[in-house]
């Protein structure tokens, strides 16, 4: 336990779905330990504190900032920079902040294409004036500003210096608790560490590994799952072998293949390429390769923005 001086925590939400915020609450009664030793000084989803209040606090006055979400627009980038400046320790919290996650799949397109889809093409949209978000708009009352929507989604670490990572969509609760314990104890690991495990999801998976052969690619509804055998051996692509573990293979225990939210293994730069290398190496029949219809959606669901190529080349 800390002395009378309480720690200052901040939570922020950039381009993400909000699930990470819920995950913070999923620690249940552990939150009581946290508030005993820490004050939450900034948490837009729960507490009404304005950006200007953060701007006004001295640099490095926040002890730990848990930042979830990717960097999709200029506001998020601004807040990332601001919170970096104000925080002693910055934690990339969740897949979006760490690897871009599903938000990062926006890198298959650019602003123009995304706007076109979102503001013109979707069946529920009626937009005869073809209005799209502008960064500034003059109205009688003055000039309005909106954040700039970027072409490319970036991860937190591609934007500012990050101290620790805790990936997952959302991060697994036991790992959040461990991370908090470590932080509260003051025994911080080396910079750049992840609070997930070094081993992959495959190591935690209860399913049986037999001949380790992939003979076909199927969607999950196309197989008659025996609830025992490794999904890959049944033809369903599972990202477990290439995904950083720590989730106790929750999805697999619920009979759903891993889609890779833990991000790349610690010694791997590009999660998708690592799984593709393994997949292509153990495939007995070259025809299986042709059955993969969506390589990025399959192998880079959570890591496109943090991959070597980062985004699709647009023409």
């Amino acid at each position: 336990m800390r002395g009378p001086q309480k720690l200052k925590f901040a939570f922020y939400w950039a381009a993400s779905c909000g699930g990470c915020e819920i995950a913070v609450l999923d620690i249940n009664e552990k939150i009581l330990d946290v508030v005993q030793v820490a004050d939450i000084v900034f948490w837009p989803v729960a507490i009404d504190i304005k950006y200007k209040d953060v701007e006004a606090t001295p640099d490095k006055s926040i002890d730990v900032c848990f930042f979830n979400g990717a960097i999709r627009n200029s506001e998020q980038e601004y807040m990332a920079r601001l919170l970096r400046q104000k925080s002693k320790v910055l934690v990339a919290f969740g897949s979006c902040a760490c690897d871009g996650s599903v938000v990062g799949l926006g890198n298959l397109w650019n602003r123009e294409k995304i706007f076109e889809r979102a503001y013109f093409e979707t069946p529920s949209t009626r937009n005869p004036e073809r209005t799209t978000p502008q960064t500034s708009l003059k109205v009688p009352q003055g000039e309005l500003e909106l954040p700039e929507f970027y072409d490319t989604v970036k991860t937190l670490a591609q934007t500012v210096d990050v101290d620790y990572f805790i990936s997952g969509c959302p991060p697994p609760v036991p790992r959040i608790i461990e991370a908090l314990d470590v932080i509260l104890s003051g025994r911080l690991p080396p910079k750049g560490s992840s609070f997930l495990l070094n081993k992959s999801v495959c190591d935690e998976c209860p399913r049986e590994k037999k001949d380790r052969k992939i003979t076909q690619v199927k969607r999950i509804y196309e197989i008659d799952d025996d609830f025992k055998t490794c999904f890959l051996e049944q033809g369903v692509i599972c990202m477990g072998p290439a995904t950083r573990g720590g989730c106790s293979a929750q999805c697999l225990k619920a009979n759903i293949p891993c889609t890779g939210c833990g991000g790349p293994a610690p010694r791997v730069e590009d999660q998708g390429a690592a799984m593709i290398s393994a997949f292509a190496s153990i495939t007995a029949d070259p025809k299986v390769i042709e059955q993969v219809v969506d390589p990025i959606g399959t192998f880079y669901k959570y890591s496109l923005a943090n991959s070597i190529l980062r985004r699709r080349v647009m023409r």
Binding site: L108, S281, I289, P295, I296, R312, M314
Partner: peptide
């Protein structure tokens, strides 16, 4: 043979990357 399979798979990936 494994390299060939990886190259084939990588070609599909490049296509998806717009390369």
């Amino acid at each position: 043979q494994k390299a060939k399979q990886k190259v084939e798979m990588a070609k599909r990936l490049l296509q998806a990357y717009g390369i």
